[in-house]
Design a protein around this nucleic acid. Structure first.
Lengths: 283, 283
DNA sequence: AATAATTTAGAAAATATATTCTTTTAGATA
DNA sequence: TATCTAAAAGAATATATTTTCTAAATTATT
């Protein structure tokens, strides 16, 4: 084995550990995965404490360190300690940086975007009406099949809802407009079903069209949109208005995604509680 | 002096130290102010290192600890260590706190989920490596066509990226496995293109397979996944590890969504800026 | 199935670390 | 300034932690 330069930063070390992981012995794998899962504790605990928590021998930790070229445990632990000391700047510092300098590195954008998303989530918590939420979940719970339709920017929402419902064993259908057949797909919705739609400005006419059609036929519709004057408002039974943040005209999705997740989980928990015996371990 | 309960949290300790500060001896004041100024280092360094940095004798540190009622240096240092561990909490721990004692109305769930999402976003800001982000955007910028592939829970990410890139006029292809042809779709990727993949535990083999194939063929791959030991790590050029929170085993998506958005916007802004540089005075 | 090679556990040794104790220094009081 | 008291330094000691080493166990190879 030739002399490779030892990683001196946590990130480099993670890369190396990831790369070599598959070639490690069972016990060393165990340690690698403990260390990567609990880097902070690994930095602070003594070798005995870490050994205990990772359920290995102290000597195994020394072997682990040596397997990556270090002199011993203390050496590799220092890398983890450095990470803790160099932890990113505080919240306040970051905010200042965001406000003052207007450089636009992807990192700056990420910070701006994260901040914007956080604000929207806090706003969502304040603004959402608990009763509406409960009603929506009730409608979903009663439905035989839950149909979902959204396009363009809202499509990820639909994809998420469809995936979650399916994987929790609920009957769900995604109207995906395959072959341009969205109307035919929507026609399938029957009285015992319900429909979830989502659409944001500029509103996709298809979505409001399907929603209107279902609504006229007496089918329950839950809508997620961005404004009280959205075309979905008049054609839905329950309509959530979620304001989304935007950075450079790129609109975020976190708040509506969070709402969608809450609906799905609300249903899941409800189902889980009543169907506890049937699906004891289901996620 | 009667037995007062010793502070067990960092915040309490800070209060006590502040209160007693004026009555401390010169050397102990020196230590107090060092400790409060450098709580992280104080937590990690040995007594000798701290003594050195604070320019005092090791024994003075013991006296310091005893002045506040602790048995010795190690005891008071533990408080500082606890702070460091709680600063970078495991989400599991925090979420448990959120969970406990709450009912499970959809509204409660939304609040829990929003909190979880917010923490994730903050964590993302701390953990992300600016340079990696910049590199990823550079790869995207150089590519002729950007291919995107993700399935199941990660699929909404792919849908979002695909939609955004397309709507900003970038050539993009979503590998959507229509007709089970994902491999054939992936074969289309050429040397001048790049691939973005996303996959979370339990990892979809298709995604790592496509990623590995592209990577072997020398195509740049940017991966979004959830752990350093993910199967995507070894088969990608740039790999982001985003820890996602979960509520009742429903995993969130905000952090990775935010990351994806930053990549896309980073590219958008970059394109805008570089064209401006080329045609500085042009309309 | 037997042998070799690797990995692991656990105890022993070496090292590092924290604490105590004695001596020295500094500061306060008369 | 002399005397007393409190604080500090530094060496000595006790404790804890890490590392090494050997025997046992596991895994791979013939």
């Amino acid at each position: 084995m030739t002399e490779k330069p030892l990683p001196t930063t946590y990130d480099d070390l993670v890369d190396i550990i990831s790369a070599k992981y598959e070639n490690l012995s069972k016990r060393l794998k165990q340690i690698a995965s403990y260390a990567l899962d609990n880097p902070s504790e690994f930095a602070i605990d003594t070798i005995a404490e870490t050994a205990d928590k990772a359920a290995v021998q102290p000597s195994a930790l020394v072997r682990f360190a040596k397997a990556f070229g270090y002199d011993g445990f203390s050496d590799i632990q220092k890398i983890f300690q450095k990470r803790l000391l160099e932890k990113a700047p505080s919240y306040a510092t970051r905010l200042k940086a965001i406000r003052s300098g207007t450089r636009n590195t992807p990192y700056d954008l990420l910070n701006q975007f994260a901040e914007a998303n956080i604000r929207q989530l806090q706003y969502l918590q304040q603004e959402i009406q608990p009763e509406k939420l409960a009603q929506a979940v009730r409608l979903m719970d009663r439905a035989d099949t839950i149909y979902i339709f959204a396009m363009r920017r809202a499509f990820p929402l639909a994809a998420y809802i469809y995936y979650s419902l399916s994987s929790m064993g609920r009957r769900a259908q995604l109207i995906d407009n395959t072959g341009g057949l969205y109307m035919q797909q929507a026609q399938q919705i029957s009285k015992n079903d319900m429909l979830i739609v989502a659409s944001f400005a500029e509103y996709t006419p298809y979505v409001s069209q399907v929603s209107a059609d279902a609504h006229n036929r007496g089918i329950s519709v839950v809508a997620i949109t961005d404004h009280p004057l959205s075309p979905l408002t008049p054609v839905s039974n329950i309509c959530f208005h979620v304001k989304e943040a935007s950075v450079y005209d790129f609109r975020a999705l976190s708040a509506s995604m969070c709402l969608a997740q809450s609906l799905v989980i609300g249903l899941g928990v409800k189902g889980y509680i009543s169907k506890e015996d049937i699906y004891p371990d289901n996620g």
